[in-house]
Design a protein around this nucleic acid. Sequence first.
DNA 1: ATTACTATATACCGAGTAA
DNA 2: TTTACTCGGTATATAGTAA
Lengths: 218, 218
Amino acid sequence: MDEKITFALRKIALLGAIDDYVTISSRELGDILDMSQQSASKRILDLMDGEFITRDLGTRSQRIKLTEKGVAALKEEYNEYRRLFELDDHIVIHGTVSSGMGEGGYYICQKGYVDQFKDMLGFVPYEGTLNLTVDKDDLEKIDLLRRPSDLILKGFTSDGRSFGDVFVYKARIKNMDCAIVMPERSHYRTTLEIVCQYHLRRTLSLTDGSRVDLKVEL
Amino acid sequence: MDEKITFALRKIALLGAIDDYVTISSRELGDILDMSQQSASKRILDLMDGEFITRDLGTRSQRIKLTEKGVAALKEEYNEYRRLFELDDHIVIHGTVSSGMGEGGYYICQKGYVDQFKDMLGFVPYEGTLNLTVDKDDLEKIDLLRRPSDLILKGFTSDGRSFGDVFVYKARIKNMDCAIVMPERSHYRTTLEIVCQYHLRRTLSLTDGSRVDLKVEL
DNA sequence: ATTACTATATACCGAGTAA
DNA sequence: TTTACTCGGTATATAGTAA
């Protein structure tokens, strides 16, 4: 979505053009957008071209109203702001990609977990986890995760082997949705295990030692 | 606020850069902003120039965090969206500016009302009202206002003359805060009387017959 | 691999103006 | 009064490249 488009669209919407047609000349819109009458006129044509607004043009006035698509475009941007300011219950954990087989990777591939995981997060995890060695300065942030998550994969028994509960924390790496998996009885460690729908190493071109910022929802 | 600035700022904030430093190369930012590495680099310099972000630049990576000013800029835009989508309890009434002495204008200038008005709306109304003849198609919308407003100027007696209650409805004309005043015992009319901190006729260059879109909070 | 400079290409803006 | 065209000046973007 072009930022010039949503800027003009938002200013027009603020005049009430979501609910009904609003009378606004290109000169007036130019004043609001801090640009010339000519540029505002062009912007209106662009908005119509993208079907973000409809207009009925009289000989000495025009009336503008947002289309469904126009409202949707604004809502999309609004949701980005909500992610920033309404759900500001997250922390950022810095760390380094490391290898080494974590038991979380073994756990999460069990069918008993995968089905629950899909219901919970909405995706089937890629087979295998990304190991993240947490920066020394951020180790204390892990304790914030030790509070029982409200996302818990229930334990089960399979082939005579018992699998315990696993805590899950929704997270993001560079806008990629992922999750921390943490077996309930894991001992204190400096490494987190991340699961994702995609192969994070390949998708984000990560190798051992790559720096990663993990944004975790609390 | 320049829209290019807030666009880049928002995308960086979404990576978690409000809470803490976040590692992001200009190449990666370019991908996110759909522009070249060079332009993204320039955008970062612009953001630093405006003191919207701080950066610590290493030899092979940079870390970015929003400043107070940067967060404030985003919150300003967020508030515009809240006005659009959270308080969507309003209607738009179309009408035409007309003259003719409404009794509302006489009423509202009484000291007994003005003091209450200032407490309620936060401004002292300009002496005189703007008369708005409502479009035939929008007359039924006035009935929505007939529900008792939660903003009521209490009646009083002055010089042996009694003044009744007046309903007040917050409204906006082209982003100007104003209010509809409606004496409780007024008979059904097709004309609304608008008060504002400023002289609306002059400020908005309105003359008799000018088309006006009135956005009313319910 | 980075960031960011310079130079060239492109897009954008607005003055003038027609309808 | 409007809207919106053309056109020329300016700002913005990117390719090439240095550090």
